[in-house]
Design a protein around this nucleic acid. Structure first.
Lengths: 137, 137, 137, 137
DNA sequence: GTGGTCTAGACCACC
DNA sequence: GTGGTCTAGACCACC
């Protein structure tokens, strides 16, 4: 059963631990502005239900985000996205850097000339983002 | 113990099956011209020793490559890279496409503008390839 | 202990690898209509138990069938016979051609006249197929 | 190194023991008239050299043929093809029957209608025998 | 030495 | 339960 809101949820892959994929999910939401400074986020239990993961995994993800200053939790009130703009501002670049680094690690051995590589990325990326706006993201 | 010459050996990652990483290793060697049409490749046992994997895993990788026409094996003589230029020519583009597709899948959700993305890739890629020429890539 | 229903199980011969004999077994079942497009087939473990072979050998046979598009496997659901009618339609002719080619390879050196050969095949085949309908084929 | 006379030698397959393949080789020569009643055949050593097999294997093959009355050896004179016409006459049919039986065993499970099967055999056989007369047998 | 098959058994992720 | 990978180790034929 897919809930309406599930559409945006990350499709879990096999490599990274689930709790880190959850963290990444929040980072993406912050980087794209879907989640803003100070905004409340679901409780551990709610998130576990929403994402169909174990509450312990949700807890672990929130712990990770708290340790890195991404979210703050005061007493019994719901956790909130930090208001520290330095942290928030860094997330987007951090996400991009991660992806780019992994990408480069995988192509560097092939020795593709920069221009050719950029051409291919450009073409494929524009195709992908064009499709984004329509039906299947 | 890693010998000096081992630098080119694949550093196994955790995601893909080892036998497919071995296949990719050969594809990269072909794409870069280190392995040429008709050239012999190590025996299953040799490769297993070289890469420190089980002979069966080496066999599985070779079987995969044979099924895909990448290598040919006649009787008991050592396997060779195919001489089919159509197949060989496609490998490089296939490798690049794979990496680019994975990259785009990971960044598309962030919604980075094309130009910004290309700038970042360009800068990081050139840095990486510059470092390539010196000691440890 | 052979159960009654086991009659259809392949009697392994010594020449072909077991995993290919398993593949042939499935091809025959498809060619004769006992297995139809989209139908599920036993799990690797079940087949291994049924045919008294190692699960790895069953896996190897299924991999072979998957690589050749005979069966499809999605996630963890049981594998199914492909629904690609082009592939299915070719199996019967492929099986027949294989047998006929091997036959001809073995008789060609004897130099039997065509008519004589056809007579013998006809007589023996009809006898065999007649016996088929009764108890032990 | 291929000797001139090797061209007609059987290409060994993997299934049957070599000595039985040697026996079959002689049977084919008798069935086709290349070897006639009473004709002398090579010594064990000669045959071993000719066929590039172990002398013991040649000896085993001759023993087999002697046991079945195909050849006769008296004292130190070279072995000869038997002159027993009953035996000689049966060889051809025996060879054909073997091949046909194996063929039928492999196609019977597919349930091909007789006429279709005969058509295919006829067509392929005639093609094969036509090719026989030219270059590659 | 070469390629290749097979078994036994451990493991993994996903359900 | 499902599919899938990997290792260790025995074997086989051909050379």
């Amino acid at each position: 059963m897919m809930e309406p809101g599930d559409a945006r949820l990350p499709v879990f892959n096999n490599r990274d631990p689930v709790y880190l994929q959850v963290v990444r999910h929040f980072k993406v939401d912050i980087a794209t502005g879907r989640l803003k400074a100070g905004q409340t986020i679901p409780s551990r239990r709610e998130l576990a239900a929403l994402m169909n993961i174990n509450p312990n995994t949700a807890q672990k993800a929130y712990k990770e985000m708290e340790d890195h200053g991404l979210i703050v939790t005061e007493g019994n009130s719901p956790s909130r996205v930090t208001s520290d703009e330095r942290i928030l501002g860094a997330i987007r670049e951090e996400l991009i850097a991660e992806s780019v680094d992994a990408f480069i690690a995988s192509v560097r051995q092939i020795g593709v000339p920069v221009d050719e590589l950029l051409d291919i990325v450009k073409r494929k990326y524009e195709t992908a983002m064009a499709g984004e706006k329509e039906g299947q993201p």
